[in-house]
Design a protein around this nucleic acid. Structure first.
Lengths: 141, 141
DNA sequence: CTACGCCTTGAATCATAGTTTAAGGTCAAG
DNA sequence: CTTGACCTTAAACTATGATTCAAGGCGTAG
């Protein structure tokens, strides 16, 4: 009996959050005779996907777009494919930017030996010098 | 004369946002005789760093922690180093998760050939099957 | 039948990250 | 000396993503 408490435990999400996702149109569980939400295994999977995507900064709106066509039942996945393509390049961009930031932080840390003298902390300058004009809204449309 | 409008243009950020960051303690520009904020090149660099980190889902609170010690003037960078180390592993985790998500999306797209028959959209299942129990709060503490 | 844990709803509240508004000061150009 | 572009402040407002609250229904154990 996959009621909301159970899927909450299994997905690691808060039951209130799951209801909230439903209000936002990301889920549409069937109901038992008593009115309780009744989830299936696909819903649990969708929640895991949702949880992962969310942790990576993808908005609920975007996740909704990715989940929607499959939730509506069997119909052409063309739109989903296009969206997936779009998100794919946004994810690639994000990975590149994270790598750049990682490089910056690593550089800061490797300065340990030379920076024992401890003048001005090199973070800002070493960090910012690597930045040109990064697009403001990664992953948003 | 680096007044707020100028640094806004140069950093690609909104002047109101920059004032907001200051209210949140991320910046502390000096003032001109007339009360106008007076920024230096380091501030512009800090704003670029801030802008990049922000785009990658790092919270203002976390960015503040990274900027703080250097903003306070010349003093030991030990704390910053530790924070940087911490953020480094968080960034590594985030990159791994994004790669996983990218893999999922790529898989979905490569199904194009076989999925011409168009049964249920494979997104959710193929996506969710790759997820085990991802920690909910990447990059938060 | 009562207690307890789980479920329902709508509404209020919260945090984060800003934007907008109102009322006003600064300053160079014409 | 007014116009216009810029700056100041505090406070109100917005959106997103939830969490909490109040009032109540369901279902099983004792």
């Amino acid at each position: 009996m996959l009621t909301i408490g159970n899927v909450a435990k299994r997905s690691g999400l808060n039951a209130s959050a799951i209801r909230y996702y439903e209000r936002q149109g990301l889920l549409r569980p069937s109901r038992l005779q008593n009115g309780y939400r009744d989830y299936d295994e696909d819903a649990v999977k969708a929640l895991h996907f949702l949880s992962q995507a969310k942790a990576l900064g993808i908005t609920l709106k975007e996740i909704k777009q990715l989940l929607e066509p499959s939730r509506d039942g069997r119909r052409p996945c063309k739109a989903v494919r296009e969206l997936a393509h779009q998100h794919l390049s946004e994810i690639d961009l994000k990975i590149r930017q994270l790598r750049s930031l990682r490089h910056t932080l690593r550089k800061l840390l490797s300065d340990r030996a030379t920076a024992v003298s401890d003048d001005l902390c090199p973070l800002i300058s070493s960090a910012a010098n690597r930045v040109t004009t990064s697009a403001p809204s990664a992953l948003s449309q």
